[in-house]
Design a protein around this nucleic acid. Structure first.
Lengths: 222, 222
DNA sequence: TTAATATGAATGAAGG
DNA sequence: CCTTCATTCATATTAA
């Protein structure tokens, strides 16, 4: 909750020079991919292809594509979030499909108040207007693509290599294992105790150890 | 880099941002640990020490350190993932326990990288991470980890216990927990920003990736 | 020019 | 570890 006590100067080093300025053709294609092809969070491979393709229309890098989708998606969602719930008595904290309406909260429409500043319903600039119909992508991700050539895609370069990518990482479980039995994870403030995500405690011992950074530890641990 | 400087806390009661906002000193140290000391996935104790140390520069909790390393590492990899096309470097993955500093073995990193602000860095292995420790650093000497107390670590607070010469590692850990605040200082140098996009180098081999424009060729050209 | 707004970039937190 | 989400910062763009 509270934030820093006295130290400020956060300086984040955000970018400082020129930023990518998409050409209209690039925008057009990106939007088409987004709205017509349902691409939302392209995989690294797709990003590569997309950026390679868009490079015909101007300078562009993979990260630009990455951020574009990331931002576009987030902003669309954000907008929807602020407008959607006004229609129904649905309060902000409910996400149930559509029923139930928790006590008083509807009138929130005063919008302006909370919108950080943006949030205005300004709406998008040129395109957008919907026209889209994300067709097959309800899930949010563009499934349906691989393999089949059933229907022609306007963006063949996007076809995935059909490797659904078995991520199979079950091991993720221990995800970090940073835990040591006797050691209190972190010294949190007594009362606050916010327990940021407790990970399964057991394991533990497991690796425990080796505390690596110590020169000697390394040497003698065996 | 700097935002406006001295801002801190914005106007309007907007400070509710629960999220940690690292100070530039904290960032500097974290990067130094990452790039110069090879820390990638610090253990709980390390996290604790690091956060204790960084607390001198501003509010911070263990989880912040934890996430910082997670994110920094993940993004470094991701960037690469959609920047250059993935090739499977076959081999060799060595897996050290996943934690830093494999005893007497680092060197393998071979050159590697472009030093960005910090001198080492940028290396990064293909898979399995490894996080090897560059350690090399300016001096060019890779010191040995089992040496003796001769050379001073830039981050003594990371050293396992003050009693460097006894194992007591584990127990040290626990008792250490209660007294993290008194640690020796150490010299630091200026910061630098690492920017994964160095934009200027336009040139770009242009299109190195065209290869994939073919629908099916994409993934498996076999 | 200046004020607003749209959007690129970055990054803390989590989810899985 | 990889991916996604929410926010925030910075700047290009456009309206006033």
């Amino acid at each position: 909750m509270e934030q820093q006590g006295g130290n400020e100067e956060k300086t984040v080093c955000r970018q400082s020079s020129t930023r990518w300025t998409p050409t209209s053709d690039q925008i057009r294609i990106l939007k088409d991919l987004y709205y017509n092809s349902g691409v939302r969070s392209p995989t690294a491979e797709q990003i590569q292809r997309i950026s390679a393709k868009l490079r015909q229309y101007g300078k562009i890098e993979g990260k630009n594509v990455f951020y574009w989708f990331q931002n576009h998606k987030a902003r669309e969602r954000q907008k929807k979030r602020f407008t959607a719930d006004h229609h129904h008595p649905i309060p902000i904290y409910s996400n149930f499909p559509n029923n139930i309406n928790p006590p008083g909260n509807f009138a929130s429409s005063s919008a302006a108040g909370l919108l950080n500043g943006y949030g205005s319903v300004a709406m998008e600039n040129s395109f957008r207007e919907c026209t889209i119909t994300p067709s097959a992508n309800v899930g949010g991700q563009n499934l349906a693509w691989f393999g089949v050539d059933t229907y022609p895609s306007p963006y063949p370069f996007l076809e995935m290599s059909r490797s659904i990518n078995n991520q199979t990482l079950l091991q993720a479980a221990e995800e970090e294992a940073s835990e040591i039995e006797t050691l209190p994870l972190f010294p949190m403030h007594g009362d606050a105790k916010q327990d940021w995500h407790h990970r399964g405690d057991d394991a533990i011992a497991a690796a425990s150890l080796e505390l690596s950074l110590n020169p000697y530890a390394a040497g003698f641990r065996h």
